[in-house]
Amino acid sequence: MDAAAQNEDQEPLVGGPIAASAAIEGSAEIAEARHMARDFLISVQAEHGLPVSARAMGMVQLVVSELVTNARKYAPGPCLLDLEISEGAVQISVWDSDTTLPSVGAADAERVGQHGLEIVMAVSQSFGVHREPVGKRITASVVLADDPGADAAGRQAM
């Protein structure tokens, strides 16, 4: 995984975005993408003082895993992962080179596999698919602090 512009060890520009990006080239790097998302959110908490609930931490890693897995499975070449904090949520964006837009099948509890986008849509505040000049970009947004009274482990503050 090639980290293109990660904010690690850097303060953001005043008023600038808190963001991280990486190019993901192999299926083995899907786990690294999840770790990058976790490390990014830990940095958001520690360095920027933004609350990140335990649920948000898990859901962001799940969304990253599902979107990157689909990109690596269905598109040739690398995919690009972008994470950005905006309006109390993390915007997750995955670009790949395949021009075919994904479709979400009707719910079917007996279907084995191909539930990734259903999962992403269920746990995300917003979801979108956009055709790009080359390929497509899938975006999802996960709220950082779904329970503002809880700490990162999900316990209620006293």
Rank of each mutant, 00 (worst) to 15 (best):
D2H: 13
A5S: 12
Q6M: 10
E8Q: 14
D9H: 09
Q10A: 14
P12H: 13
L13V: 14
P17N: 08
I18C: 09
I18A: 03
I18G: 07
A20V: 13
S21Y: 04
A22E: 12
E25H: 11
E25C: 00
E29C: 01
E29V: 03
A31C: 08
A33V: 11
R34I: 06
M36N: 06
F40I: 02
L41K: 07
Q45N: 09
Q45K: 11
E47L: 11
H48D: 11
S53A: 14
A54P: 00
R55M: 09
R55I: 08
M57A: 11
M57T: 08
L62M: 13
L62V: 04
V63C: 11
V64K: 03
S65H: 13
E66Y: 01
V68L: 04
V68Q: 01
A71H: 03
K73F: 05
G77N: 05
P78C: 10
L80K: 11
E84I: 15
I85E: 01
S86H: 09
S86G: 01
E87T: 02
A89F: 01
V90E: 00
V94K: 07
W95S: 10
S97W: 03
T99Q: 06
S103A: 02
S103C: 04
V104S: 02
G105L: 07
G105E: 13
G105A: 14
A107K: 11
D108T: 01
R111I: 08
G113W: 05
H115R: 12
G116T: 07
E118F: 00
I119G: 04
V120W: 06
A122S: 12
A122R: 07
V123M: 04
Q125W: 00
S126F: 14
F127L: 00
G128T: 10
V129D: 10
H130S: 15
R131K: 03
R131F: 00
E132C: 03
E132H: 06
V134L: 14
A140L: 02
A140N: 02
L144F: 13
A145S: 15
D147V: 09
D147L: 05
P148T: 07
G149M: 12
A150S: 09
A152E: 15
A153D: 15
R155P: 08
